[in-house]
Computed example of a mutant assay.
Amino acid sequence: MLSITSFINHSKFGLVNFLLLPFSAIFFIFSYIRLCLYKVRLLKVSVSSVPVIVIGNITAGGTGKTPIVIAVANYFASRNKIVGVVSRGYGGEYTQESLEVTLTSDPINCGDEPLLIKQQTEAFVVVAKKRSNAVKFLTENYSVDLIISDDGLQHYAMGRDIEIAVIDGHNRLGNGWFLPAGPLRETKKRLKSVDFIINNGSHMEGEISSKIEANCYINLATNEKKDLDFFKSKKCFAIAGIGNPDNFYSLLEELGVNLITKTFADHHKFIEKDFEFKGGYPILMTAKDCVKCKQFATSQMWYLSVDAKISSDFYQQLESKL
């Protein structure tokens, strides 16, 4: 029988994770009870009059979900569908029950990801603390053909027609334990009930492969575009306030950039002081982070434009389920 020390040493655990296990047990119990209450309809589920596609995950942290939301929204727009997108607008300071996001919205108010989705799609975007309220807002105010939920796999008050779980192809399910000792929001068995599993960055049998591909660098101040070899072999600062910054840094390193990295918490509210660096090197960041930096953008600041490339037959499978 393994001792506590052996358990810690032979797992992906640290001492802090081990000490958090009782809280993970509590999280699991409450999550399971909550799910059961929705299944037996003791808790209300709001059913939409139009199809709802949930693109979420069963782990905390970044899995590359938002680029996939953007790719799916743009695909349906190319098929002449009117698309709505709902989000919680994590980190946003809005107080309304539902808030529609426009191109002039303040990311501090609506959240960074909803504004990025609005900028990169033709979709109507609405944020609400309860995504079911955002769905209701869209169906009452616009003739949308379908609604995509950015995250919300665990928001069971929102009815859904299709569930897509996104997994980071490298980290997958982490140490396999529930929050806060591990990254899991739900048991891995939950993946058996979703319609699609998108593997972001790797390949696994039974999962849809996806890859984040870089397009170009875009200057925040001038909108000037540069090819992907522009910063090759050059020293640059790389700034990230996203769920999995290592994926961003790795992508830049694959492009040959010599990095000096500075990492912030996910959804960090950037201020001008955050960019006071010595050396005058170019500053590279993600599109998600740059939407919060427009007011103090300089020609030193660039973002890497990316797209999610998903297996070609995915969209046909997705449409067949609608």
Rank of each mutant, 00 (worst) to 15 (best):
V126S: 02
R131F: 10
V126W: 02
I117Y: 09
Q96G: 05
P114Y: 03
I147K: 01
L99P: 00
E140R: 11
S149E: 12
C110P: 07
T121S: 01
I108V: 08
Q119N: 13
N133V: 00
T139V: 15
A134S: 06
L146C: 12
V126H: 03
D145Q: 09
K130E: 14
N109K: 10
K118L: 10
P107L: 04
V125E: 03
T121P: 06
A123S: 15
K136C: 07
I108T: 11
E97K: 14
I108L: 12
K129M: 02
I117L: 10
T139H: 01
N133F: 03
E97L: 14
R131Y: 05
Q96E: 15
S149F: 09
S149H: 07
L116A: 11
V101H: 01
L146F: 04
A134L: 05
A134W: 12
V144R: 04
K129H: 10
N109D: 00
E97A: 13
L103G: 11
D112G: 04
E122Y: 00
I108W: 09
K130G: 01
L116V: 12
D106C: 15
I117D: 13
A123L: 07
A123W: 08
V135G: 04
I148T: 09
Q120G: 04
L116Q: 15
N133A: 09
P107G: 00
T121L: 02
T121E: 02
E122L: 09
T102E: 06
S132L: 05
D112S: 09
Y142I: 10
I117P: 14
E113S: 06
I108C: 07
V126T: 04
F124R: 15
T104G: 00
L115M: 05
E97V: 15
S105L: 00
F137Q: 03
S98C: 14
K118V: 01
L146H: 04
V144K: 06
N109C: 12
T104H: 04
P114S: 03
D145T: 10
I117W: 10
I117V: 13
E97T: 14
E140D: 13
V144C: 12
C110K: 00
K136L: 12
E113P: 06
I108S: 14
S132T: 01
K136P: 00
N133G: 01
I117H: 06
L116G: 14
V125G: 03
S98E: 10
T121I: 03
Q96W: 08
V127A: 04
S105I: 05
V135H: 06
Q120W: 08
Q120A: 05
E97N: 10
L146G: 15
E113I: 03
L115H: 05
T139N: 13
T102L: 11
S143F: 07
L116N: 10
G111K: 12
R131K: 15
G111T: 12
N133S: 13
Y142Q: 07
V135R: 13
A134G: 14
V135K: 08
E122N: 15
T139I: 14
N133Y: 10
K129Y: 08
K130A: 11
Q96S: 15
T139A: 09
E113L: 04
L115P: 02
